[in-house]
Simulated assay, not measured.
Amino acid sequence: MCGACVVHLRTLRPEFVRDAFVRYRITYVSLVPMIVKNLERGLRAKFDELPSWKRTLLNAMIATNRLLTRHRPNVKLSRMLLSNVHRGFGGEVLALITGGAFIEPSTMQFFYDLGIPVVNGYGLTEAGTALTLNDLKPFRADTVGKPLPGVELRILNPDAEGVGEVAARSKTVMSHYLDDPELTLETIVDGWLLTGDLGRFESGGHLQLFGRKKNMIVTEGGKNIYPEDIETAFDGLPVKEYSVFAANYVWPKKELGRESLMLVLRLEQNQKFDARLLEEISARNRRLPDFKRVSGYLIWEKDFPRTASMKIKRQALAEEIAKSLGRDAVVAL
Score class of each variant (00 low, 15 high):
residue 309 S to D: 15
residue 262 M to G: 02
residue 32 V to H: 09
residue 107 T to M: 01
residue 289 P to E: 05
residue 265 L to F: 01
residue 82 L to Y: 01
residue 284 R to W: 01
residue 90 G to Y: 02
residue 281 I to A: 00
residue 292 K to H: 15
residue 131 L to Y: 01
residue 219 T to F: 07
residue 187 T to V: 13
residue 59 N to T: 15
residue 99 G to A: 11
residue 224 N to C: 14
residue 181 P to S: 05
residue 266 R to N: 12
residue 80 M to G: 01
residue 273 F to E: 08
residue 306 R to H: 15
residue 218 V to D: 08
residue 55 R to T: 11
residue 148 L to P: 00
residue 41 R to S: 11
residue 273 F to M: 14
residue 19 D to T: 06
residue 44 R to F: 02
residue 245 F to L: 04
residue 118 V to R: 01
residue 191 G to N: 12
residue 136 L to T: 05
residue 209 L to A: 03
residue 25 R to Q: 13
residue 318 A to S: 13
residue 42 G to D: 06
residue 304 F to D: 05
residue 308 A to F: 15
residue 84 N to V: 03
residue 167 A to K: 02
residue 118 V to P: 03
residue 146 K to I: 10
residue 165 E to A: 11
residue 174 M to L: 13
residue 259 E to V: 13
residue 42 G to P: 01
residue 280 E to G: 08
residue 208 Q to E: 11
residue 67 L to D: 09
residue 205 G to T: 07
residue 187 T to S: 07
residue 54 K to C: 14
residue 35 I to E: 07
residue 46 K to P: 04
residue 47 F to H: 09
residue 46 K to F: 08
residue 258 R to P: 05
residue 222 G to M: 10
residue 231 E to R: 10
residue 243 S to T: 12
residue 249 Y to I: 05
residue 303 D to C: 08
residue 239 V to R: 04
residue 18 R to I: 07
residue 273 F to V: 09
residue 298 L to T: 01
residue 176 H to Y: 13
residue 77 L to T: 00
residue 238 P to E: 04
residue 14 P to C: 02
residue 104 E to P: 00
residue 289 P to M: 05
residue 30 S to W: 14
residue 237 L to W: 04
residue 112 Y to K: 13
residue 284 R to N: 07
residue 154 R to S: 10
residue 246 A to S: 11
residue 264 V to T: 06
residue 295 S to A: 09
residue 267 L to I: 11
residue 315 Q to E: 09
residue 310 M to R: 12
residue 25 R to C: 09
residue 87 R to E: 05
residue 55 R to L: 15
residue 95 A to G: 08
residue 244 V to H: 06
residue 108 M to H: 02
residue 326 G to H: 10
residue 218 V to L: 13
residue 186 E to I: 04
residue 332 A to L: 10
residue 214 K to T: 14
residue 212 R to L: 10
residue 285 N to K: 09
residue 64 T to Y: 00
residue 284 R to V: 00
residue 197 D to H: 13
residue 127 A to Y: 06
residue 262 M to S: 01
residue 18 R to A: 02
residue 168 A to T: 06
residue 241 E to C: 09
residue 71 H to D: 15
residue 268 E to D: 06
residue 271 Q to F: 09
residue 318 A to E: 05
residue 106 S to N: 08
residue 102 F to C: 11
residue 315 Q to H: 11
residue 43 L to W: 04
residue 163 V to C: 05
residue 309 S to Y: 15
residue 173 V to I: 15
residue 177 Y to V: 09
residue 300 W to A: 01
residue 265 L to H: 00
residue 104 E to Q: 07
residue 144 V to E: 02
residue 238 P to C: 04
residue 226 Y to C: 05
residue 130 A to F: 12
residue 219 T to K: 10
residue 200 R to P: 01
residue 161 E to T: 08
residue 162 G to S: 11
residue 324 S to R: 10
residue 221 G to C: 14
residue 127 A to E: 07
